[in-house]
Nucleic acid binder design. Structure first.
Lengths: 346, 346
DNA sequence: TTGTAAGCGTTATCAT
DNA sequence: ATGATAACGCTTACAA
């Protein structure tokens, strides 16, 4: 079966502790050079591979970091997962994702806790819906260090999130500058919520500027883009007057809306200006490239990993709550003036 | 710290083995109803959570399935990962992804082997490049059951892959029907390889129909789409005569090429017909929706998980090599006739 | 410099 | 019906 330190020891007529010492003690190990060499070469030729499970059980480090995340196909999550994995692996850990749906959050959280993870990164959007998060965290027993992901309104003691305020301010200012007066907010129904930072920014702006708020509920399709397409279709065929501008909570929605508008011959940005959020890789490649809000996802993921690592290594250090700056990229979809769109940012 | 079986035992004045028996033996356990109840309620109130690491060490199941994959941001991998995770979690395992670059394949493979995984799903595109795969598999010691992912030319004893032949045949036939005579194949340099099924299909078709082959090397950008954009730009500004049609190895490339052509005022499908592969979620939403090849990714992932599970449960069963059918979706980007595009499929 | 032994949290095999 | 004990592979005092 598997080569263990015992087998190496037996092979060499040594004790397994000597082997262990050579194999993972630093250079200054108290062993004769000859035995060290014998052990090292035996380990190599026999193909010894340390058993992480046993090492983890022994109590030191498990080397595992969990991610608790919604089971979602959105590009945003893929991208986040990509960067998190990269950082975590670079730091010498392995990342083990636990996805869950609203129906099985608790079950999955319990499952996660069975692996003694050294830390957990939690997308606390859904976790904290309906106070469930509080309930989960109150589960008895040990809970590893947690860093919340991307909810600026997080109740967690540590988190990394995006500060949408400046970019949203820039964007909505830009949109009104372009002449938009009725600016709709397109999102899935659950997102029209005070805990949703982007929506809060929108509300504030509209109130401040005495503009009417409009919601577009994105529903009905099998994918987000399709839902957006359908909802936009419905909007167009229903209302006599369309909004002048539409902000979409993410670029998948923006894509669906874009397509619906084009299919109906609505000109972008002539008739309606359109903006999204996330800077998904495809939005710059549309015939009318989309204005969008750029999130420093890679940086945010790196920050989250660093915060978690610090918490792991120095359990008593000060909690970190970090807001990452977002910025605006203005493209053709909101640029009515013929002059070159200006790169605004926050 | 953590509530263990021993603590419950101590609390109740029982032995830890009794507790263990109650906690995971089936219903017919040989325990008095009263002690069972005491134990179960104690476990609940104390918040006992079985330690998977310890369970794994004890030798039964680790409950872990690994994925060995390239560190890539391509949408294809995200989607595959999404479905694999779903299937694996549904089957009661956890999925732990190990990503690697060409520079550290071996190191990462060794790292993976340290966790005693019950099975591994391997993207064997890169693993088997340069015969490295053979080398890795020959590492001494136990190697868990492996199922290869998506390489139809795999040398692994078990795999699930895509059969591009019918869809490629349909597509290229369709493209020539639309009048294309010089059809270029756009891909990253490493992909012009006999082991790449799509490319082989292309070569055969071109030879069979006595058509000249053209390569577009996709290079130079930071993302695949950007590289494609740049390469297409270069192509346009360099050559006097452009190809009539371009097949792109995936939709990210197709997107970049699409954008470049549009920027240069090249009409799609008027001047050039364009097709991609993967049916990425955005290609149907372009102003000129893209013809593409649809891979049954969800099914393929499910199949791969089933094959692996079977191998785990019945180590001596017959090896499975499964090819999944792909199909063609014809959209506007290759439809020159005004008549409604027909849904061809294989 | 090396070996002995205990322990990590489980499960499983024996006694009792 | 329950308890003592060994074992999984490893790390780490402590003893020799």
């Amino acid at each position: 079966m598997r080569v263990t330190i015992k087998e190496i020891a037996r092979e060499l007529g040594l004790s397994h502790s000597t082997v262990s010492r050579v194999l993972n003690q630093r250079e200054n190990a108290m062993v004769s050079d000859t035995t060290r060499d014998r052990i090292l070469s035996a380990a190599r030729t026999m193909g010894y591979r340390p058993n992480r499970i046993a090492q983890a059980l022994k109590g030191a480090r498990s080397g595992l970091i969990g991610v608790f995340m919604p089971e979602s196909q959105e590009h945003f999550f893929s991208e986040v997962l990509f960067y998190l994995r990269r950082c975590v692996e670079l730091a010498g850990f392995e990342l083990i994702p636990f996805s869950c749906s609203p129906l099985n959050v608790e079950e999955r959280w319990l499952k996660l806790l069975r692996w003694d993870l050294e830390g957990v990164l939690v997308f606390d959007y859904l976790l904290f819906a309906d106070g469930l998060g509080q309930a989960l965290l109150q589960h008895h027993g040990f809970v590893p260090p947690i860093v919340g992901l991307f909810n600026a309104e997080s109740h967690l003691t540590e988190f990394v999130a995006f500060d949408f305020a400046p970019a949203m301010q820039d964007l909505l200012t830009h949109m009104t500058d372009q002449g938009a007066r009725t600016i709709a907010y397109a999102a899935v129904p659950g997102s029209f919520h005070v805990a949703e930072h982007r929506y809060r920014c929108y509300q504030h702006f509209m109130v401040d500027h005495e503009l009417e708020q409009h919601r577009i509920d994105v529903v009905g399709g099998t994918t987000l883009s399709e839902s957006a397409l359908l909802s936009a279709h419905e909007l167009i065929s229903r209302r006599s007057k369309l909004p002048d501008g539409i902000f979409c909570q993410n670029d998948e929605i923006a894509l669906g809306v874009y397509r619906a508008l084009r299919q109906h011959g609505v000109d972008i940005p002539g008739d309606i200006i359109l903006a999204g959020c996330d800077n998904a890789p495809f939005v710059a490649y549309l015939d009318t490239p989309l204005t969008t809000i750029v999130l420093p996802i890679a940086d945010a993921c790196q920050a989250a990993c660093q915060v978690l690592q610090r918490r792991i290594e120095q359990p008593d250090s000060e909690p970190t709550r970090r807001l990452m700056r977002t910025s605006l990229v203005i493209r053709a979809s909101t640029s009515r003036n013929s002059r070159q769109p200006v790169q605004a940012s926050s």
